[in-house]
Structures are given as structure tokens and as C-alpha cells.
Design a protein around this nucleic acid. Sequence first.
DNA 1: TCCATATTTCAGGATTTATGGAAATATTGA
DNA 2: TCAATATTTCCATAAATCCTGAAATATGGA
Lengths: 128, 128
Amino acid sequence: MEKKNALTAFAALSQPTRLDVFRLLVQVGEAGMSAGEIAAALDVRQNTLSANLSVLLHAGLVRNLREGRSIRYFADTEGLRGLLGYLLRDCCGGRPEICDPLIEDIACHARPTPLDKIGQYPTPEDHT
Amino acid sequence: MEKKNALTAFAALSQPTRLDVFRLLVQVGEAGMSAGEIAAALDVRQNTLSANLSVLLHAGLVRNLREGRSIRYFADTEGLRGLLGYLLRDCCGGRPEICDPLIEDIACHARPTPLDKIGQYPTPEDHT
DNA sequence: TCCATATTTCAGGATTTATGGAAATATTGA
DNA sequence: TCAATATTTCCATAAATCCTGAAATATGGA
């Protein structure tokens, strides 16, 4: 069942608009963006974006939260972690010196306020 | 130009056989495997595997090396690093405390991966 | 209730992709 | 050179996916 999820997630990321959307949501972090804001930022029609957001939702890569008339979307870091964990499980024949530099490279090095209180990441609800 | 590479890579990973192949090559690490060994291990026909290996090659996810009559394939860690770097660039609104645990989780430690930490890829609900 | 806003769902035709069989290429050894 | 092994390429068909336009649903306010 886990493999199917990973395939769904990679398929979701293999489409230009969805890759843009996901990276945008990764960049804005816990702030998230409403569907309309995303559509405006990426210049995509709303129905097309809606279909693509639905794919990302179903893939476990984003979450959403209704806010009045708008629906706010967030990157789902747990889903991403699961995906990368699946991809790299038991990697490198047990020799971490191969994947360690890989980890090093993708780490988020920008550390403006390392010791500050962590803002609470919203727990989204489901709006189908 | 990099976006196109990322799309190609994610598309490559969104096919069952190719995902299996790549994870297998990630697991065997620098040892690599010949095309025939991979075909036998995953029970795939050689021409189908060949086409899929070609897709992975073109996506920058695997490398190959001829060894006499065989061709040995390896996961391309640099390609993978570039892909993940692209996906997570400028992540988390500059607050690394969100992506740090993600990095932590996928790190390949010298000890065997704890089984209770993996295999927890969330099952997404259907929003259709 | 009626209207405006925000977003999703539906139905279609065009493009892409996967797979299997058969043939072709590359390497090794007799 | 000929045969055997290892892998790739070609071709045709079947299946999956994408986008667009139109209609539908959900929420908030007058």
C-alpha cells in the first residue's frame, strides 16, 4: 500500500503546475496560501488549479483548511517525509558516507532565529 | 532548465517498475547491479527493463558502466541531490525548524534504520 | 431570500506513455 | 568467422492523463 502512495506522490510532482504549486507551498511554509492566491501567483485557471490541488491532496503532499469562503493550502511535511523515507530506505548498502552529503545539501541552511519558539503548524480539516 | 529536469525525474519515479529499480539501486549503493540482475530480481522482461532504465538514465537518476557483456547500473546520488534540492529550495519560509526534522528522518545513519520510524507513510483520504 | 465570491465537478477530445514481440547491436570465446 | 550471451531498439496497440468550457456547490452578506 505504501508503494502505491509513493507512486501517486511522484506522479503528482511530475506535472509542471503541480510542481510549481508544491514548491510554492514549501516556500511559504506554515503561512500557506489560498487557492485563489495560488492561481493568481502562478497564472493558472481556477478549475485547472483545483484539479491539480486535488491531485496533490490525494497524493498526501498538501493539506487544506477552509477559511470562510477561501480554502487555504499548505505543504504536508509529513507526507513529504514519508515519501522521501520510502525512496531512501535502507540506502547506500549501509554505508552512510554516501548519503550523508546528500542530506547535508538539501538541509535548509538559512537560520534567521534558530532558538525561537516554533510557530504551530495548522492542523487542517478536510473539505471535499 | 532545472525545472524540466525535475519534472523528468519525478515522472521517471512515478512508474512502478522504475520506482522499484531505483530503490533497489539505492539500497545496493556503490555495488550497483547489472541489467540482467535487476531484471531477475524484479521479474521484469529485459526489453521492458531496458526501456525503463533508459528513462531513469535520461532523468539523471541512474548511471551505468559497461563491464564486458553486462552493463552495471548505479543510483546517481548527485542527480538525486539536485532533485531534492530543487524541491526544497527556500523552504519553510526561512524557518528551518520545519524542515530540519524532515532532514533528520531521511538521514542514513550507520545503524540500521529503526523499523518503527519507517513504514508510516500516511494514507491520504479521498477528496474527489 | 437573492446575489456575489471562492472553489470544485463534469464531460469531451488531444497528447503522452507503457508494454510485448521481433529484430538489431555489442561483447566474448571457440 | 560463427555461435552464445547481454542488452537495446523498433513498432503497434492499449491505457492513462491534461486542459478547456460550462455547470454546480459552498459560504457570506444585504
